[in-house]
Amino acid sequence: MTIDVRDPVRPAPMLPPVDVAPLRRARLRATGVQAACVAVSLFMALPIVLIGLAAVSSRAALAEFPKPLVPSEFALDSLLSFLRATGTLPALGNSVLAGLYAVFWSLVVGAPAGYALARHAFRGKDAYQMFILLVRALPIVVLSVPLATMFLRLDVYDTVLAVTLVHTALALPTTVLITASIFVSVPADLEEAAQVFGCTRWQAARRVVVPLALPGLAASSIFTFVLSWNELLGATVVTLGHRTLPAQVLTSLAEASVAYRFAGGFALILPALLFIFVMRRYLLNLWGTTLR
């Protein structure tokens, strides 16, 4: 066994003193990074924590002035009465359904369009890309009344399907553009190599391109879900008795008492957070294999 000359117990007296400056610098940088991470996390998490705390505090504690950071008294009654109000839970279910269906359909329709934009050069491609964005340029107020009339005639009015259609249409521009940029960054060589080894075009896309593009698809699905989760006006106009959560209760939150606002805010945040949490592991790939 050899003796390590850097062994701190028996330092070799003849060696020049160790320069600790780079080590210190690295440590300092690590501390800085940690501090920045903590600051960013606080920036994101603190409002959610505060809303959560306020949602479970009693009415009397909410009315205190000046307000303490941690409420003096906890109570679940405003949250419970919010959840028990007619239609809140079914509306929550409708929102989840509409969100998931919008994610599904926007990927089914949007991702192939993004793939085509990424792989093929065709006449009017730039114009097409601009044209796609036009959906978002028109305010939903203008679209909603004709849409409602059309849905009434087609007999899909007042269904989650109607909301899903509206939300899918609204989400398509972002889905197409995000997936296009993600498919561009998957090298065409890989796809060609797969075809050389006997894959059909479709198999190459499904087995090579889609797994590599998964982070981008996850990102666009988060966009779509959050858009659908928050969208209000379209959902209000095309439904009546099968509403989504924003249409059912959250319109009135701005006019409700503070206790209900916090309870509703909390109920609105949670499922969206949950969805983002589930999608997170796909998102983390963003800094992984293909995309550098």
């Binding site: 007619t86 239609g87 409708n94 359904l97 269904t159």
Partner: peptide, 8 residues
Amino acid sequence: GCTGFATT
């Protein structure tokens, strides 16, 4: 997805 849950 056709109808969803009644909220009335």
